[in-house]
Design a protein around this nucleic acid. Structure first.
Length: 155
DNA sequence: GCCAACGTTGGC
DNA sequence: GCCAACGTTGGC
């Protein structure tokens, strides 16, 4: 079982949106970056736990957690000409982009902000601090526990 | 809105 | 395969 961090802009799709899904889960699609794609396709597994990170907002940071309910599969949006995420270079035989399904697990009592993370020596190796733009990032078990402790409770 | 960092594209 | 130009992300 592995840990990940997924980035989202809450104006587009927030942790609360995930919590409100009638089905209790959502497709995490629209990832159009090769490094992130490779993680979704090859590494993220059902049962993995994820931190949900809100960017381009106030406060920027980790808002809560979710769980992977379906491992990587070809992102249907790449085949849909109506979609913003359509990619003419992709085909059913050779999909270019992948997505996963996740379900809401928890909202933190308060957001663990980027400033919090940057000021915490135990988190100095978090990918977030070195490669801020990567939208799917690995998180170590130690980092996972530490972020939870900073969130003020929970596991 | 600005700007730095970084990813992608395309000419050669 | 290199590298310049360009586009995008994302913090502030």
């Amino acid at each position: 079982m592995n840990y990940w961090l997924l980035k989202t802009e809450p104006d587009e799709y927030s942790l609360d949106d995930l919590r409100s899904e009638p089905s209790g889960q959502a497709r995490w699609d629209g990832i159009r970056n090769y490094q992130a794609r490779n993680l979704l396709r090859d590494a993220v597994q059902q049962g993995d736990q994820v931190l949900i990170y809100h960017s381009q907002c106030r406060p920027v940071g980790v808002a809560g957690t979710a769980e992977v309910v379906r491992a990587g599969y070809p992102d249907p949006a790449q085949f849909d000409p109506q979609s913003h995420y359509f990619d003419a270079r992709a085909s059913q035989e050779a999909p270019r982009w992948y997505c996963i399904d996740i379900r809401f697990v928890s909202a933190f009592p308060h957001t663990v902000t980027l400033a919090d993370i940057k000021s915490e020596p135990a988190l100095e190796d978090m990918v977030l601090r070195r490669q801020g733009r990567l939208s799917v990032q690995p998180v170590s078990p130690q980092e996972w526990r530490h972020v939870h402790a900073m969130a003020g409770g929970g596991k």
